[in-house]
Every structure is written in C-alpha cells, then in structure tokens.
C-alpha cells in the first residue's frame, strides 16, 4: 500500500447499463399497462367480444379465450395482479426478513443459533408448498391471502441473506471505529449496515419479486390464487392448457407477459446495484 499514489478516480459517474435500461423498460411497460387498466382496457374483461378461441387479429391482438373474451385485456389486467402480488409479497418479505435477519446478526450466539436453525427449516420447505399451506390454513383462496402467503414464505430467504450480510459488515473495522466514535447500535444499523447490505438485498428483492409473480401464477394455476374474475396469468395458462394444441396463443401470450416481467425485474435489479454501489462505478 502506498501513500504517494494519486487519487484514482474522476468524479463518480453513475452508469446506466444497457441491461439496466432494458430491464427498466420492461418493468416500466408492465407498470404502465397495470396502471392503465385502472382507467381503461380495450374491452370489458368479462364481456364476450368475439368468437371462441379466435386467433390474434387487429380487433383482438392476442386472440380470444374459450368464452370469447379478449385475451389482451385479460393479460393487461394480469399485469396489475402480478405487480400487486409481487410488490405486496416483497414488502412483507422485506419487513419480516430484514428485521429478523438484523436481530439474528446482533443477537447472542445462542439466540442466533435458534433463529438460524428456524430459518433453515423454513427454507427447506419449497416456497410454493409453504404458500399453499398458508393459503389452506387461511380463509380460502383470494388475492390477499396469496400475497401474505408468498410474502411469509419469501421472508425466510430474505432473513437468512440479511443475517449473513449484516454479520459480514459487523465484523469490519469500520464498525469498531463507529462504536469507538460513540455511534449507537441503531445508528450503526442505519449508517453502516443497511447502506452496505442493501445493494445485495435489492437484487434479492427483485429476484423475490419475480419468484412471487411466478408463485402467484402457480397458485392461480392450481386454483389457490386470485379467484375469477381476476385474470391472473396463472389462471389464463391453466385455462389455455386444454386448448394448447388448437389455440396455442392462449398459453403463449400470458407466458410471454410472465417471462418478460421476470426478466425485466432481474435486469433492472442488477443495473440498480451498479448504480447504487459507489465502489462499482466507473473509475
């Protein structure tokens, strides 16, 4: 290590990578479509507006379903449901997971061991299975129960990640320096721990968001998600299953919507980490 070396970097420049821009565009598109459905859709989602299983056309961009309803309208509403479930579930997972993870990181060894073992047991259950158990234990299938179930299931993963990241930060000399400087434990969490772990956490949140969207689609596919008339992408996929060989677009269109949102979230999160983390900026 030298003292004489000149400062290395020009003023920090925030990088907006192509991947970040593509991710932001995909997520932004879904958000815009989801918000648009609050005030406008091409057709009444419950109305039979065309022939049954009609192929894509100028009137029906994604064709129609087996009851003659406009599939594009249903996919648009599906975006709203996916975003509501994703954001709700991630908010619950973040609130529970980050709190429990931080408590475990700061706890005595005995308490930490108990919390770590509990989290490992919860993580051993597949998220979908855990969500199904919570839905089954609740008051039946509805959107709120699905959000709660997926959020609770994801919170164990967030808690374990938070615990690992926070413990790594707490072992650094700058935490000891903060203690010597008189910074309280709450201050250490606010000033040092959270800013240092959030770039990794936010990537995980985006991943959990995508997994929550997939989990909701899976629950709806199994009849445990948002009940009709909510046009969840999972329910659309389930309904299209019987006619996948005769009218494949009924499965392809919601599939494209689902995959594009999940990919968009992942790209967006990865780019966000680069922007948020000063040590990853261009030198």
């Amino acid at each position: 290590m030298t003292d004489a070396a000149p400062a290395l970097a020009p003023p920090a420049s925030r990088r907006l990578t192509p991947a970040f821009l593509v991710g932001a565009a995909l997520v932004g598109l879904h958000v815009a479509v989801g918000l648009l459905t609050l005030v406008w859709t091409p057709y009444d989602p419950a109305a039979m507006t065309g022939g049954r299983l009609a192929p894509p056309s100028l009137l029906h961009w994604a064709g129609t379903d087996r009851l003659g309803r406009d599939l594009f309208t249903e996919i648009m509403i599906g975006a709203r449901i996916a975003l509501a479930v994703g954001s709700g579930a991630v908010a619950i997972a973040a609130a529970i997971g980050v709190t429990v993870g931080l408590l475990a990181a700061f706890a005595s060894r005995a308490v930490d061991d108990v919390l770590a073992a509990t989290l490992d047991i919860l993580i051993a259950f597949p998220t979908l299975l855990l969500a199904m158990l919570i839905v089954a234990a609740g008051d039946g299938a509805n959107l709120g129960t699905a959000i709660l179930a997926i959020g609770i299931a994801a919170s164990a993963i967030v808690a374990r990640l938070t615990r690992i990241l926070a413990r790594r930060v707490l072992a650094m000399d700058y935490i000891t320096a903060a203690r010597v400087s008189g910074t309280s434990w709450l201050g250490i969490v606010r000033i040092h721990v959270l800013p240092n772990i959030w770039p990794t956490l936010i990537v995980n949140f985006a991943l959990q968001f995508g997994l929550a969207v997939i989990a909701e689609a899976s629950l709806s596919y199994l009849g445990l998600g948002a009940p009709p008339p909510n046009a969840s992408w999972g329910r659309l996929l389930q309904e299209a299953q019987a006619t996948v060989y005769t009218a494949p677009f009924g499965a392809i269109a919601p599939g494209i919507a689902l995959v594009s949102l999940v990919i968009g979230l992942n790209l967006f999160a990865d780019g966000l980490r680069d922007v948020a983390d000063p040590t990853r900026r261009r030198r």
Partner: peptide, 12 residues
Amino acid sequence: RYPHEFSGGQRQ
C-alpha cells in the same frame, strides 16, 4: 470522495 478512490496510505 469515497474511500475506494484512495491508496492505502491515504486511507490511513
């Protein structure tokens, strides 16, 4: 500026 912009001696 941020710490990563400095050498070991400057950081110390």
